[in-house]
């Protein structure tokens, strides 16, 4: 009934690579996803892209006043070309316009952790990146999706959607050479491994180095830990390159540690996730250290902004720690800040907010991950080829102290920070912080009503 001034929240952004597909080449930008294994491109003719082109999604904005902020990017990153649809901004693929594309009559139907999906058919075509060409490369063309961009999944082949289509399409599970595997089979790299460097949060470019390590991009020691076998088999419900997190601590500006948890849990370094999802007990312990209140709608803790300055979120992965600036996880909103750590009971992920401060080497063949603290010193490249082990990496002291699956228990045993804490999950005052970030002066809501915090005493797990 009245004008409501809404703020569009910048979801940090996503990390993409540019590829050329087909003959003649069609340009697509694909989200780099270490949490999935298939490459999908949007079919230029899919219904979602057509819908977006007609703008019907915007018909309901009549009652909103939209504001936007534009940030200039280097001229080399975005051309001045006018994009007629959001899908064409990211690049969509027209199979009929490629003389070398072949459908292989295998369907895919993949849903991700955020509920988005791609459905369509696999096919093969020429894929090129720079001066490298991969002939007859397998990927999916999505004719049903609500994602504007395609995706480049570079995880283990066991995570390919072809392994989970038996019931839906009566397809015998099989694996194909996904992108990192194809690079090796085409002789472009010696081992199916790659190093991810997202660079500083404000940087426009990072890099992914297939088949090598750049020693100039990290500081300190590069430690190796094993991928967890429970997530590496065809029977795994949630396949992926999970490793064991052994503990979590907050380190303030005086280098004083506050241990949040010494509980083992499996976690994925996922470039396709913006923030993080952690076990509820551990997330609550972190939230409590900052005096936060959990908002299930905002998927994070509402905190005083002053409490999250000059602080690091540090993870122990087995005798060594990797720390990320807590500001990477923070979204300022209204007069408070949202600490974007989602509490969950399964599927624990450290996303871009953590990965910007980490240098991660994924060794898909040896099923190991090597991790170091990222370095932003802009030193000259020092690239070493991965031919057997990862150059410069040493086995972590806690290599063999891995999380072990126990039926019914998603995490290990141990102590949380302060075994009693306050659960704020239903705190109504902050349930929709982001949605009401800048309410109109005339608006009123029940959110101003007082709420009582539910206090729950938790026992040791």
């Amino acid at each position: 009934d009245e004008v409501f001034n809404s703020t569009l929240v910048n979801a940090l952004g996503m990390y993409v690579v540019k590829l050329e597909i087909g003959t003649p080449p069609q340009t697509v930008y694909l989200q780099v996803d270490t949490g999935s294994s298939d490459m999908y491109v949007n079919d230029a003719d899919n219904a979602y892209c057509e819908l977006m082109s007609y703008g019907s999604d915007y018909a309901s904005t009549d009652n909103y006043e939209l504001t936007a902020t534009f940030t200039e990017l280097p001229s080399s990153t975005i051309s001045s070309e006018a994009y007629t649809t959001l899908c064409s901004y990211w690049g969509a693929f027209s199979a009929s316009n490629s003389s070398t594309f072949k459908y292989n009559d295998t369907h895919f139907d993949e849903t991700y952790g955020d509920g988005t999906y791609y459905k369509g058919t696999y096919g093969t075509d020429v894929v090129s990146l720079g001066n490298i060409t991969l002939e007859s490369f397998s990927f999916g063309v999505a004719n049903s999706t609500e994602n504007q961009a395609g995706i480049l999944g570079i995880s283990l082949p066991v995570g390919e959607n072809t392994d989970s289509l038996e019931n839906a399409y009566n397809i015998t599970p099989f694996e194909y050479k996904n992108f990192p595997m194809a690079l090796k089979s085409h002789g472009k790299i010696e081992k199916t491994a790659y190093s991810l460097f997202l660079n500083e949060p404000d940087a426009h470019f990072g890099s992914i180095l297939f088949g090598a390590v750049d020693k100039s991009k990290y500081s300190g020691q590069l430690y190796t830990v094993p991928m967890l076998q429970a997530f590496n088999t065809i029977d795994s419900l949630n396949p992926g390159m999970f490793v064991t997190a052994q503990g979590v601590a907050i380190v303030d500006s005086d280098s004083k540690n506050k241990t949040a948890s010494e509980v083992q849990f499996p976690v994925l370094f996922d470039s396709g996730t913006t923030y993080s999802t952690l076990p509820t007990g551990i997330a609550d312990a972190i939230g409590k250290i900052f005096g936060g209140k959990y908002s299930s709608v905002d998927q994070g803790y509402i905190v005083d902004c002053s409490k999250v300055n000059n602080t690091q979120l540090s993870f122990d992965f087995g005798g060594f720690n990797i720390s990320a600036n807590i500001s990477n996880f923070v979204t300022p909103a209204k007069d408070r800040c949202l600490l974007n750590i989602e509490a969950t009971d399964s599927g624990f992920v450290l996303g871009d907010a953590f990965l910007v401060d980490a240098y991660v080497v994924y060794d898909l063949e040896n099923r190991e991950v090597s991790i170091a603290q990222a370095s932003f010193n802009d030193q000259e490249e020092d690239i070493k080829i991965i031919s057997d082990g990862v150059p410069g990496a040493t086995t972590a002291p806690g290599y063999y102290s891995t999380w072990v699956y126990t039926p019914g228990s998603p995490i290990g045993t141990g102590d949380f920070y302060n075994i009693s804490w306050t659960s704020y999950s239903e705190n109504s005052e902050y349930q929709t912080l982001i949605a009401t970030a800048i309410p109109s002066s005339s608006s009123s809501s029940s959110s101003s009503s007082s709420s009582s915090d539910e206090t729950t005493t938790k026992n040791r797990n």
Binding site: V16, G35, D114, L129, F205, G211, D270, T273
Partner: peptide, 28 residues
């Protein structure tokens, strides 16, 4: 040279106007 280096470009996510909240764009 036995390695392939790809620049990874950080692009702003265009919010999906059809979605019901920010939660839809937080994780994949």
């Amino acid at each position: 040279n036995s390695y392939v280096k790809l620049p990874v470009q950080k692009l702003a996510n265009i919010p999906d106007m059809d979605s019901q909240g920010a939660s839809d764009i937080f994780k994949r």
